[in-house]
Design a binder for these strands. Structure first.
Lengths: 231, 231
DNA sequence: GCTTGTGAACACGTTCACAGCG
DNA sequence: CGCTGTGAACGTGTTCACAAGC
């Protein structure tokens, strides 16, 4: 009986984005119907998703854009600052470090790490790339909350282990690999080790996205069309 | 009644990746248990996922790595070539175009497009960046199957419209926006327009990943731990 | 014996209808 | 009267137990 579906969290992120767009257009009111249409889901879904976290609307009126936006930011933990390190400063890591939009949400890049001597010492986005050896001390000394993992797949588990061992609370894994919440040495049946107990791993895998796309092009009838608007 | 869960497709991609790793290590046999452990799911789940597509194992024995790999590649449509254009050749678009691993799966980048005059004409990964105006003709002339969309969010719908209009079969959307399967002009209640009927859209959204991560760090108990769950 | 394959039970997320309230 | 909020119905995906077969 945990409650909130993970899909709901993803949709909340979408609603928040829509609310920001509305605010930018100086539209101050919306409704579950309006949000639903913009998000490509049903109005039932919008109301149910919001209901998990509170009552943010006014019956007969709808939602006030700034209020709902503020509440969703609070729910999603976006009204606080998150200190982030990027591990792996290749092309993808640099694209991530420079991606506009991250800093809008109080995700602050405080450190960049790599093992490649060609990269270590260079400056990216105003930050000097450090060697992985410095990671544990840096994470502890700089109150780092999250690590973004953009290393090649065969180094992902090691790097994730380093992040978990250093004490980050979350890892956003861009590598096309399953991160195991345990030490590498004895991957067998081993218990989840202590340093992993509190670590959340989220995956962003665009090779997987490419492959799913290939599948759904070949099997269009199996595609989940959420857009279904009956009435 | 349609059948196959979308989550199953994502997991098949993971199984395939694991099988490739096993093959690289010259391990020739595996089992639902082994795959499950490596993928971070249950063995029931592995067997059920595979059962949607056929009988690939031998009872008492398990699965033969090359055979299961071949079958999954067939199922996922990865034993054929897919011609891809990248729309938006900023830092992210370049990282995508250069990402190793895409070409392993017969995803061939055949064209790069942008509107920025600083970028158009440059060469990236051996391809000259073309102006968006050339897109429709190029897509038709070069049998382009997919477009990868890496433009800023406020241009994503326009660019997606251009891709759909040009006749691609799928769009992998990296922009943090919901792509509407309709013409922009009259977004209201309008019908899904013809050029969108057959277009599959998959999203890869790492800003959303960052936000989900923030939420689950704040609410660890709500995190979906596939491994085991009591209460 | 061992491991796959699968119908049936279960749990979870989505849909719905309508109650609640402005 | 309109739109939100929500308990209940429904359908889909996951878990399970065991039958099938090497």
């Amino acid at each position: 009986m945990t409650g909130i579906p993970t899909a709901t969290i993803s949709r909340l992120v979408t609603y928040l984005r829509i609310l920001e767009g509305l605010e930018a257009q100086e539209i101050s009111r919306t409704s579950s119907n309006d949000l639903a249409e913009r998000a490509g889901v049903t109005a039932f879904q919008v109301r149910k998703d919001l209901a998990y976290f509170g009552r943010f609307g006014t019956r007969g009126m709808g939602y006030t854009v700034p209020i709902l936006k503020r509440e969703l930011m609070r729910v999603l933990g976006l009204n606080q600052t998150w200190n982030v390190v990027v591990v792996g400063v290749g092309r993808l890591g640099q694209a991530i470090a420079n991606y506009p939009g991250a800093s809008d949400y109080q995700f602050q890049y405080v450190g960049l790490f790599d093992v490649n001597p060609d990269v270590v010492g260079r400056t990216v986005r105003g930050l000097t790339v450090r060697h992985m050896d410095e990671l544990p001390e840096f994470v502890r000394g700089n109150k780092v909350d999250m690590g973004f993992l953009a290393v090649p797949p065969d180094h992902a588990q090691d790097a994730a282990q380093a992040l978990a061992g250093a004490g980050v609370r979350g890892i956003l894994n861009f590598a096309p690999t399953v991160i195991q919440p345990r030490m590498l040495e004895r991957a067998g049946q081993q218990e989840i080790s202590d340093e992993w107990r509190a670590v959340i791993v989220e995956n962003v895998d665009f090779l997987a996205g490419m492959k799913r796309l290939a599948f759904y092009i070949l099997n269009p009838h199996l595609n989940a069309v959420d857009t279904e608007e009956t009435e």
